[in-house]
Amino acid sequence: MSVSIKANKTLFANRRISDQMYITLLVASVATCLFLIASVLVPNFFQLQNMLNLVTNNWAVISLGVGVTFLLVSGNFDLSVGGIVALSGVLSVWFAQSIGGANALSTGLGLPYWLALLGALGGALAIGALNALFVVKFRIPSIIVTLGTMMVARGIAQVITQGSQRNTNLPDEFGVLGSLKVFGTSIQLPVVFMAALLMLAIFIERKMLFGRLTYWIGANPTAARLSGIDNAKHITYLYLFSSAIAGVVGILLSSEFQSGYSNRGMLMEFDALVIALLGGIAIAGGFGSVIGMFFGAIILAVVTSAATGLTLSPDWQFILKALAVFLAIMAQTWALTRRNQ
């Protein structure tokens, strides 16, 4: 044992931060710098409430980003999350609406509230299972599959809402989840959900076997299989995980707005992908972290809210997003090649 302790010392003495940590730090410092610059340039930017808003306003996309990040690390896309948000929200409304409304859109299934939520979550998981089936079993590129399921999920939502929304004849408790203030503060339940999810995700990623399996599969699927890992099972779990998150987000959003709207969550899948890319997650797989994704979201939030603060037209957000992703990717490639020289 004494030998190994000695070895421990020498090997730790030279322990340097990994590329992973390096990129995460890079992303975090970029987020900080941007925040400071925005504070100087934009009036009233440097305020506690504003800082909090950067995170709380984006709770939905950050939550979706967690599932998308895990899948990207495993080498797979998930573009279906936006559609699932719409689907689960609409389902929860439809299930909870009481029977015998004035017209088709105000008549639901009249299920108890808890059952409605379970059913909505089940619908979300079904889409996740469909993703897994096509990606794992049929080996169709995940980007195609999830584009398809995105449309299927949203399409079902549109059929149920007949292309518009359902917002009548709901039980009283329906609006509670989305607007509940926690512990008497102004923090709402969805934000708590996001925070808890982030903690859980970081724990899974850093401390659980599940997280490590994700990295192994993403880094080299063949080697993972030859090392006895059941890639198919794990990717199935990841798709279910991601769709479950999207399902909860959809339920919370529909509760907050007390409506099931088929266009809700539109383009959220792209935003989730964008913050993951900003956060240094490589689409080749095996590289990236949830913390990085979180800071990626901060970067995007700072940039867009600074643009609003500078009274730029909201149309600028698309251009700023594009620029941010482009610069992020170039910077990360540049930083990694430089470091590895």
């Binding site: 049929f138 398809g148 449309m151 299927v152 059929v159 292309g163």
Partner: peptide
Amino acid sequence: VPAYYQTLVIGAVLLGAAASNH
């Protein structure tokens, strides 16, 4: 069918086409 079936059908056709290509 009403117009709001369109997204669903297109999505289903996309998945179906991908699967049959496979």
